[in-house]
């Protein structure tokens, strides 16, 4: 049930984080394409224009222009995009952020790890999640991914 090539989008304003993310994905060794965006505006423009929808969108919360939460809300309110799998990828693990994004309809919440091997494990876990299950049975226990 996994697609031959996984299409991944990452909206992240920090260059280093994008590097870590790219490197980690490369090391996970799965057929994928990774499109990176420096802010929410670029991401949304791309999503509105593209014909090929991604499998997973990773959203940083704290971005200039359009924040991750705004992007999430826009995706969920758009008929064409509303079924996308969205993973929040943020430094913060504050209850506020977790609550808000959960209510706005994000599928998982990932707290950015401080360790590269952990990042690899997280990415590996996320792409192996049974997304159908996560989307159907939204529940708080499974929502937060922390290591």
């Amino acid at each position: 049930m996994y697609p031959a090539t996984l299409h991944i989008l990452l909206a992240e304003d920090d260059q280093d984080d994008r590097l870590f993310f790219r490197d980690a994905f490369d090391e996970v060794k799965i057929e994928h394409t990774l499109a990176e965006f420096e802010d929410g505006i670029d991401l949304m423009n791309y999503l509105h224009d593209t014909d090929v929808l991604p499998h997973i969108v990773f959203l940083d919360l704290n971005m200039p222009g359009k924040s991750g939460l705004e992007c999430l809300k826009e995706i969920r309110s758009n008929n064409r995009l509303r079924d996308l799998s969205v993973a929040i990828y943020s430094t913060s693990a504050s209850n506020n952020n977790i609550e808000e994004t959960f209510i706005a309809g994000a599928n998982v919440y990932i707290k950015k790890p401080k360790d590269f091997s952990t990042l690899k494990k997280i990415i590996s876990d996320v792409i192996h999640i049974n997304w159908q299950y996560v989307t159907d049975g939204l529940n708080r226990e499974n929502y937060m991914l922390s290591y």
């Binding site: 920090d14 280093d16 984080d17 790890p113 401080k114 360790d115 590269f116």
Partner: peptide, 14 residues
């Protein structure tokens, strides 16, 4: 402060 620190730690781990 957490943000740059986390990156420092990330680089340390790498």
């Amino acid at each position: 402060l957490q943000e740059p620190l986390r990156k420092i730690q990330m680089f340390i781990s790498r």
